[in-house]
Amino acid sequence: MAKKTMLRLAPLALAAALIVPATIVRAEGTQKAKNPYGQEIKTITQTIKSNKDANKALRDAIKQKKQEAKNLTKGLKGTGALKDKKDGIKAQQEAIKAEQQKLKAINEGIKAKNTEIKEDRQAKNYEELLKDLKAVPDMQTGKTPILQNISNQLDALIGLLK
């Protein structure tokens, strides 16, 4: 029984003995070139992620407020109270649409920068990558007041509907 096991394990041990040294030699020979801007890129990337999270929280709150406004509108449809508040509701909706158009323009700019960042990263053009990365947090912080304005407009709309 022990002989059979040894005969089965011998080829495995031989294969392992050949593979392990080969991977060690390969790993030593294929070291990546150091990115001179690595730490700065990492810092900016973390800033971008935190800004994205903050804006996502605002967008989530806006979604909830939109849903609340829809529910209030549905509740008022049969009562005729919407006709009395129609002008105020239209004004709020127009203000929200105007803010959303501003937001859309900023989002398109961020998408364009993200494409440039991806191309720079693939080309290993770290100077351009750093320049493009530095532009994104400014764009993101430009979105924050617009999102807050939309949220405030939705609060006013909800106030009208109540």
Rank of each mutant, 00 (worst) to 15 (best):
T5G: 06
M6Y: 11
L7N: 10
L7K: 06
L18I: 13
V20I: 08
A22T: 03
T23K: 00
V25E: 07
A27S: 07
A27M: 04
A27W: 15
A27V: 00
K32W: 15
P36G: 10
Y37H: 13
E40R: 10
I41H: 12
I44L: 10
I44N: 04
T45Y: 15
Q46Y: 12
Q46L: 03
I48P: 01
K49R: 13
N51F: 09
N51G: 03
N51C: 06
K52M: 14
N55Y: 08
L58W: 11
I62H: 12
Q64G: 02
K70P: 05
N71H: 11
T73W: 14
L76M: 09
L76T: 00
G78P: 04
L82V: 09
K83T: 10
K85C: 04
K86D: 15
K86L: 11
D87H: 00
G88W: 02
Q93L: 05
E94I: 07
E94K: 14
A95V: 00
A98S: 09
Q100N: 07
L103E: 13
E108V: 02
G109I: 01
K111H: 06
A112P: 00
A112W: 07
K113L: 11
I117V: 06
Q122G: 07
N125P: 06
Y126E: 00
Y126N: 05
E128W: 10
L129Y: 10
A135E: 08
V136K: 10
D138G: 15
M139F: 12
Q140K: 02
Q140P: 05
T141F: 02
I146Q: 03
Q148Y: 14
I150F: 02
L154A: 07
D155A: 04
D155W: 15
G159R: 00
G159C: 06
L160I: 01
K162V: 00
